[in-house]
């Protein structure tokens, strides 16, 4: 057990967590932020991607206790003042989602790509998203969305 202090979506949080609790469970079960999804047990599917101090991480393989003092942004924290982030808007415009399950991780991962590289090529987008599985879209709408968002961010 350890008390951790952190900022989640701009809000200060102080919670006692068992040492073995992973960040995805912490967000979902203790903070009720169920937008972060868990789609596998092996850190392969990427549905759980959040930003930890500005970088995308798979929250299913991050210990909550290790996040003491950090800033976390989840899919719930991406829209500002009720206005969706340009990446969220682009996913809507280009039909980058169907069932919506992989979407939070996919969007968070894509946002981080554009933080790291302003105008990625199609191949760079596809390579970056290699760690996020989507079973519905065939990735075509997702790639189009990221390209479009890049032109607007």
């Amino acid at each position: 057990m350890a008390v951790i202090n952190l900022k989640v979506n701009g809000k200060k949080i102080s919670k006692e967590v068992p040492d073995n609790v992973i960040l995805s469970d912490f967000l979902r079960n203790l903070l009720n932020l169920t937008g972060t999804h868990v789609g596998c047990d092996t850190s392969q599917c990427g549905a759980c991607v959040v930003h930890l101090n500005g970088n995308s991480v798979k929250s299913c393989t991050t210990l909550a206790a290790d996040c003491d003092g950090s800033e976390i942004t989840t899919i719930e924290g991406l829209a500002k003042n009720g206005k969706m982030h340009p990446m969220q808007e682009a996913f809507k415009k280009h039909h980058g989602l169907q069932c919506g399950f992989c979407t939070p991780g996919m969007v968070m991962s894509a946002v981080d790509l554009l933080q790291k590289k302003k105008n990625p090529s199609e191949q760079e987008i596809r390579d970056w998203l290699e760690g996020n599985l989507c079973r519905c879209t065939g990735y075509q709408g997702i790639v189009a969305a990221v390209k479009d968002a890049a032109s607007k961010m």
Partner: peptide
């Protein structure tokens, strides 16, 4: 889409 994109699914 909006609910899914904002984590409200």
């Amino acid at each position: 889409d909006k609910k899914f994109l904002t984590g409200k699914g």
